[in-house]
Design a protein around this nucleic acid. Structure first.
Length: 891
RNA sequence: GCCCGCCUGGCGGAACGGCAGACGCAGCGGACUUAAAAUCCGCAGCCCAAAAGGCAUGGGGGUUCGAGUCCCCCGGCGGGCACCA
């Protein structure tokens, strides 16, 4: 683009703002004056504000998503600081995880070396952005100083009964050779590796998050500064439901090896519509049958391989195996229903067994149709006319085709439930089950306990020892941290800790016998579940120092991607409660305010051969046709989508900062659109932002170094008053916009003020004299502009601040937020729209709050309005003060 | 399939139920320049020669003096979850 700074020679009379020297200079000034450092325990009497952006995984380079995230947080931090808050704004590294091990396997670099090299590179890039961070608090989760404290927390939770070791069906990732929590399986694939997941039985460590399910759900209501949709997603994830557990007696206990099957249902009202019972392939009953029936074994084995991704491709693929067993119906003991093993029944939800009511559940219906099972309607839709249900036109009454009916209605064909509503029938059915001793009403949760074991090296060691005699023995607190051994090899799959010659061989702390150290490490979500608390006292000898954490927590404003809406945020909420239960802190909720930003997107490009091209490989001809820069080859412009390495539609923040500076990058990101939406990164947009930085600087230079007159002159001319009003209205508008995260609106208002300053500059030039009132007003406007722009473009703000007053004792970053003078913000006159029958026919300029009679008279007298009213009878006059008049006419 | 968003000029977007399109990007015209770039100024939703007027916030209804905004139906786009009984 022609707007590139390289091709913009500095004009001799107006040297351009040189961000290359200015940005590092101001960054040094902030550091020297410790502008962004906060005390662990800040002094009482001043309000505190904790701003936190989700800390990054140290992949090696920052990407535009980071730039957006940290810019948003920095605006908040700088703004709140100017508003008088003592601000905590830390940064650290989510430094454990698989990519480091992959690098070790692929390139022979030690995970620690790889990680710390990446951290150094990314820290340098973040520092170039000019973020107002307290770098003294920086830590990486892979440092023993951090994860050792995490081990303490774990042992406290173990003591408090919040940890459990149990055998369970888990998702096995064959590529990563590790277990994934159910929440981490996406479409049957590992959320990190993408490998198809298999089911496997393994001993695992679990954190008992389910114990907090009711509280985690109830407390969502209090999170009024969270996005509604995040709360909804969490509520659905926790998944409270009311239903019944009931036991079905098997009619041939000898064959089955057990005499009953327990089922959970949310629809006990449809029990009379039952035509089969189905258990999950992992159900104990299925396992017993498989042990003696080769065909049952073949079916369950097939289900295990299949995972869940099949269902996406083949929606109608309901598979089952008829066990030949039967259960008795609880209300009609003479009725026998067949027992199936079915691939759509989940072992982890409810009891792993269901009763099938095909008429009123789509999955059950699909299954029944596939295997020729009966369909017995028991809910009749109530006709809209309020007549009797089950009339001739009512297809829900008898005729179920391929659509199950799950709407409202009345119960039919169900003996003692007949005629009841669904809700009444549920209650009645449950009380009958209770009377018969066959079941009870229960509340069920979808949320499962959090499996935290990982068979990996690059994670926090789980601090326990397995002793043949004593069982599981916690590592004594005095010997913590359990430090990862550095000398490991990655020449074979699986966990290097298992292959280490000595590390796992230890004496039992209890009996002294030879014992084995736990070689599982924690899920990295554990690391990120309490880092926000550690930031309050990052060097404390305990996990958190109470005095600090109680002063700072909860985080006032947390900012990050929507992709963490469920897992990370839910785990952090759980961890906070668990830390409270173990006496580490006293808050319940970690994040008072949450903001979820949109993604950064970019056009994608392919050459004639279909190969993806990076944006910098593409240029535009004069008529806008894209072509390959190297050889002019044809280029197809693809969709605008999230930046990704595979599509090569990425833009490197480092290159942008080199070329335009950090302020330009920050400004464009804020200006383009509302921060919660996806933004499109465009070259033209950055160039525009760059031009604005130069323009602001030139406006400040336009004062030509003229000192600001000491006092506001007693007489203020029209031009000066116009500018002063623009200045103060801008303060009010920008303040309101920043409070509401409407950064793009703040940018628009700042453009307007810049335009007003430009006009004033010309007005002053036209008078050809130093009109002192105007000069003073321009100083005021530019001073204000510098402070208002400072949260967003901090370096340029300092540069302008310094230019206006080279002797200033304080930096712009140290100044208080400007106050708007209400007298100047108030309108001098208002434009009132005049409508006839709701259609605009004219406008009036009036003093604010003019008496209604005068406004109405003036409105009716407006020529265009008068023409529209001519010969008509006005039946109603609507007057909204300072806004609108609407005449309603007859006919 | 279920749930949640979103839909406004060429583009990003603005708009307590009250003048739709602020501000910017791209565009066009002008000034400056030998010329271009940069810069500065101005124009700009669509129809109509213009005025007047009409049409315009995905489509259709409704509530209201007045709807981009509230309600109902439909369509499209995006996202989340998914055999969750």
């Amino acid at each position: 683009m022609s707007a590139s700074p390289e091709t913009t020679p500095a004009r001799p009379d107006a040297p351009a703002y040189d961000f290359r020297t200015a940005e590092p200079r101001w960054q040094r000034a902030w550091a020297e004056r410790a502008c962004f450092e906060a005390e662990d325990v800040p002094p009482q009497g001043r309000p505190t504000y904790y701003v936190l952006e989700m800390f990054p995984y140290p992949s090696g380079k920052i990407h535009m998503g980071h730039v957006r995230n940290y810019t948003l947080g920095d605006v908040v931090a700088r703004y709140k600081r100017a508003r008088g808050f003592t601000v905590l704004h830390p940064m650290g590294w989510d430094a454990f995880g698989l990519p480091a091990e992959n690098a070790a396997r692929e390139r022979g670099i030690h995970p620690a070396t790889w990680t710390f090299d990446n951290i150094a590179a990314m820290r340098a890039e973040l520092q170039r952005m000019g973020l107002s961070l307290d770098w003294r608090r920086e830590f990486a989760t892979c440092q023993p100083e951090y994860y050792g404290q995490q081990q303490k927390l774990f042992l406290d939770m173990l003591r408090a009964g919040l940890v459990e070791r149990r055998e369970s069906w888990v998702n096995w990732d064959p590529v990563d050779q590790t277990v994934l929590a159910n929440e981490q399986v996406i479409d049957g694939r590992g959320w990190r590796s993408g490998a198809l997941v298999e089911k496997k039985l393994l001993s695992q460590w679990f954190l008992r998050i389910t114990r907090y399910a009711p509280e985690l759900l109830a407390a969502l209501d209090g999170l009024d500064r969270w996005p509604e949709r995040v709360r909804v997603m969490q509520a659905k994830w926790i998944g409270r439901s009311e239903g019944a557990r009931l036991r079905f007696a098997l009619t041939d206990a000898k064959l089955a090896g057990q005499d009953e099957v327990e089922v959970y249902t949310t629809r006990p009202d449809t029990l009379f519509g039952m035509s089969f019972l189905a258990v999950a392939p992992e159900h104990p009953l299925a396992a017993r049958l498989a042990a003696r029936d080769p065909r049952a074994a073949a079916f369950t084995a097939e289900c295990r391989r299949m995972g869940t991704s099949e269902a996406v491709i083949e929606t109608a693929e309901k598979r089952g195996y008829d066990t030949g067993l039967f259960v008795a119906h609880p209300f009609r003991p003479q009725l026998r229903c067949p027992v199936w093993i079915a691939n759509f029944v989940l072992m982890d939800y409810g009891t792993g067994a269901i009763f099938g009511c095909p008429a009123h559940d789509q999955r059950d219906l699909d299954f029944a149709r596939a295997y020729g099972l009966p369909v017995l309607p028991v809910v009749a839709a109530v006709p809209a006319d309020g007549g009797q249900p089950g009339g001739p036109d009512d297809d829900a009454a008898g005729a179920i085709g391929t659509r199950a009916y799950d709407g409202p209605g009345r119960i039919v064909n169900s003996e003692f439930l007949d005629g009841l509503t669904i809700e009444d029938a549920k209650r009645r059915a449950i009380s009958e089950l209770e009377r018969l001793g066959l079941g009870a009403g229960v509340v069920n949760w979808r949320l499962r306990d959090w499996g935290v074991s990982r068979q990996r090296y690059w994670g926090c060691p789980i601090p326990v020892i397995h002793c043949a005699a004593c069982g599981v023995v916690p590592v004594p607190a005095a010997t913590l941290p359990v430090v990862l051994p550095a000398d490991v090899t990655f020449d074979r799959p699986g966990n290097p800790l298992d292959h280490h010659p000595t590390w796992r061989h230890v004496a039992c702390p209890n009996c002294g016998a030879a014992a084995r150290r736990e070689t599982d490490t924690f899920d990295t979500f554990v690391d990120s579940s309490w880092y926000f608390a550690r930031f309050c006292s990052p060097h404390a000898a305990e996990p958190v120092a109470c005095a600090a954490v109680d002063r700072w927590l909860p985080v006032d404003q947390y900012i990050g991607g929507i992709e963490h809406a469920i897992l990370h945020l839910l785990y952090a909420r759980f961890f906070t409660r668990a830390m409270q239960a173990t006496g580490h802190l006293s808050v319940e909720e970690p994040f008072r305010g949450l903001f979820t930003q949109g993604m950064v997107t970019h056009e994608s490009y392919r050459d004639a051969a279909g190969k993806w091209l990076y944006p910098e490989e593409v240029e535009r001809t004069a008529d806008g046709t894209p072509r390959r820069r190297a050889d002019g080859g044809a280029v197809t412009v693809g969709r605008v989508e999230a930046m990704s390495k595979s599509k090569r539609n990425t833009v490197d923040p480092g290159a942008i900062i080199d070329r335009y500076g950090a302020d330009t990058a920050r400004w464009f990101i804020l200006a383009d659109n509302p921060p919660e939406r996806d933004m499109e990164w465009t070259e033209a947009g950055v160039a525009g932002a760059y031009r604005f930085t130069q323009r602001l600087f030139r406006l400040a230079q336009g004062l030509g170094g003229a000192a600001c007159p000491e006092e506001l002159p007693p007489t203020i001319g029209a031009a000066a008053r116009t500018l002063r009003r623009a200045t103060h209205r801008c303060v009010a508008a920008v303040t309101e916009a920043l409070e509401g995260f409407a950064f793009n609106v703040a940018v628009a208002r700042l453009h307007e003020l810049a335009n007003a300053v430009g006009e004033a500059e010309r007005a002053q030039g036209a008078t050809a004299d130093a009109a002192v009132d105007l000069l003073w007003s321009r100083h005021e406007a530019l001073r204000t502009l510098a402070l208002l722009v400072a949260p967003m473009m901090p370096h340029l703000a300092e540069e302008i601040w310094h230019l206006l007053d080279p002797a200033a004792a304080r930096l712009a970053a140290e100044m208080a937020w400007p106050d708007a003078d209400p007298a100047l913000v108030a309108a001098e006159s208002v434009t009132i729209a005049v409508q006839v029958m709701g259609r605009l026919r004219g406008t009036l300029e009036m003093p604010p709050d003019s008496p209604e009679a005068i406004v109405l008279a003036a409105a009716a007298a407006e020529p265009n309005v008068a023409r529209a009213l001519e010969g008509r009878r006005v039946v109603k006059r609507v007057h909204v003060a300072n806004r609108i008049v609407n005449f309603v006419i007859a006919g």
